[in-house]
Design a protein around this nucleic acid. Structure first.
Lengths: 336, 336
DNA sequence: CTGAAAGCGCTTACAG
DNA sequence: CTGAAAGCGCTTACAG
């Protein structure tokens, strides 16, 4: 089958040039101490034979795989894919490749099964969109692999990460709904035990409290844990007029469900999301949403990872709140 | 720093159990010939010590890294992220991890620089959203790594892949525009030299030709190669009323640009995209678009890769046209 | 400035 | 059924 096209290794380069494997390796890795003449001979031979290093072998020996693991739920939500795109490209420029690990919808957490497959790849760093399960925190710390929690609050775990002030974002959304004149407010979250989700809800509640209002307990929903259709019916029955959703995708889903029932966002009710995915995808601005400056945020995530990879681990403060969100007005809430 | 938490290797398990490294390896890889007693001893020791295999080492020795490289432009377009999500999860289930490689916007092709970094990782397979550059076809074939071109026509390269009948999709879109009564038609593509882009254009032209119409050469645009604003002005000046875009993202971008100029899709003009990303993201259906059944298509891509990985390489026909597209009517074209 | 040796952690023949 | 040896392709000490 093969056209004599055998794998070219350092030994082939060594033989071709009459140098030792060792010296060839030193030239390719630009370690000090070799003559210009040797350098040129090596480069010429590599080019001629089409040498490509085996990162598996170099990683095994050197202990650095030049690899970063990215842990996520799914890539369907543009918040993930958009930021992952930015982060992976930035790391790629610096010679790192990204290996993808999803928890395959088992849970919103990093569990042992996931960490096991991650560690088997011996990544130099791990960037996780998922929070660690409670019993995994020590395990992760003991692994001594730089671990960044991206977009979620890591302080509670004593871990490094980047997060947005989600409570503040929730307040912005709540204040906007109130300004628009909505008074019968609901919150549609994802999971009841995920901190970001609760933070946004919390912000909404603060905004309401300032106007002497509050969020009725039966107007708080977590769609991953209950029936979507029943929730929509309940919203209609109770004449809810202002809805904050945990993110844009949920907001779109709900908008569509309400259209099917003859109700229209911006007219019959107001709806606000989070993430501003319309902007990421260059869509016309329909949905009112909270934007956390994801582009810059992703770049900071990549830079933080690169810092950790270059060995500045211990000095970093465990956590940084880098951004203040802002509201983006769309047509899904009433004009003021 | 380390709490005595040293790396656990096969040798540790061997010492703990009193067996040889070899035997331990055989048990973990479920190779034939070991007693139940030995198996239990090994598993207990692995669990107690928290053994995790080093895939770098096993890959180096065995020649299989259990890794698939995914080559793409960007993950921003949901067509990429949605299908990548499905493919990577399916592969993950079968024990493969995906390493991401973008060409970092250098070109829409797989070039040598990209292949170099791919090959350095010694993946068992490569799935590419990008077409190979002309001078890379032989290189890729000689590498003898299973290579799938996903979503693009590979026949011209004599390569394996999955693609949709794009000409047919273009016809569907063209026929719909004509049915709606649009007569002054334009095509907004991405690159002039990418086959999918031309195929869709070609289909549009066929639909027009059947009605005795044709696409004016100055109403064909490739936005990656010309000024977007100038194009929009031209469309307005010439009173174009029906526009087919290469994909939904371009269609959205154009819709927004026309809104800024006071023109509205579905009223002042009709616009059709490709991919049905609204459906992927559970958005209300605004845009009329051509859907190629991406979910199923991605699953087939993953299955094809798994087939190749299990060694059925040579028997596969080089190429399969698996799906027929269908039109999804939105509000961006006139009601018929 | 260059080379010979050792070894990263596995799996693969091969012996017994 | 189990083990001792070799080796995957590199990089890292260490000698010279």
């Amino acid at each position: 089958m093969a056209e004599g096209k055998k794998k070219i290794t350092l030994r082939d380069i060594a033989e071709k040039t009459g140098l030792s494997v060792n010296t060839v390796s030193r030239v390719l890795n630009k370690k000090p101490y070799y003559t210009k003449e040797v350098e040129e001979k090596v480069n010429a031979a590599c080019k001629e034979l089409g040498y490509i290093v085996d990162m598996n072998a170099s990683g095994l020996r050197s202990g650095s795989t030049k690899t970063v693991a990215i842990l996520y739920d799914d890539l369907i939500n543009p918040y993930y894919s958009y930021t992952t795109d930015i982060i992976s490209k930035r790391l790629e420029e610096k010679g790192y490749n990204c290996i993808m690990f999803s928890n395959n919808d088992r849970s919103p957490y990093v569990d042992y099964e996931l960490m096991r497959s991650v560690m088997a790849r011996k990544p130099d760093g791990i960037l996780s969109y998922l929070e660690p399960a409670a019993d995994m925190v020590d395990f992760i710390k003991n692994s001594e692999i730089p671990f960044i929690i991206f977009g979620r609050d890591g302080t509670q775990y004593g871990m490094t990460g980047l997060s947005v002030d989600e409570v503040y974002g929730g307040r912005l959304a709540g204040e906007h709904l109130l300004e628009c004149g909505y008074r019968n407010i609901a919150y549609v979250g994802s999971w009841h035990d995920v901190k970001v989700c609760l933070d946004r809800q919390n912000g909404l509640e603060q905004a309401l409290a300032e106007k002497g209002l509050s969020l009725a307990p039966d107007h708080v929903f977590y769609i991953r844990e209950q029936d979507f259709g029943q929730m929509v019916d309940k919203l209609l029955e109770d004449n809810v007029d202002g809805i904050l959703c945990f993110n844009d995708m949920i907001a779109f889903l709900l908008t569509e469900a309400l259209i099917e029932r003859g109700k229209h966002a911006g007219e019959d009710y107001g709806i606000v999301g989070f993430d501003n995915i319309q902007q990421m995808m260059r869509m016309p601005r329909f949905l009112t949403t909270v934007d956390a400056g994801s582009h810059e945020f992703a770049e900071e995530g990549a830079d933080m990872m690169l810092d950790l990879l270059s060995g500045a681990e211990e000095e970093r403060e465990p956590f940084r709140n880098t951004h203040k969100s802002f509201l983006v007005k769309g047509r899904s809430t009433r004009e003021i």
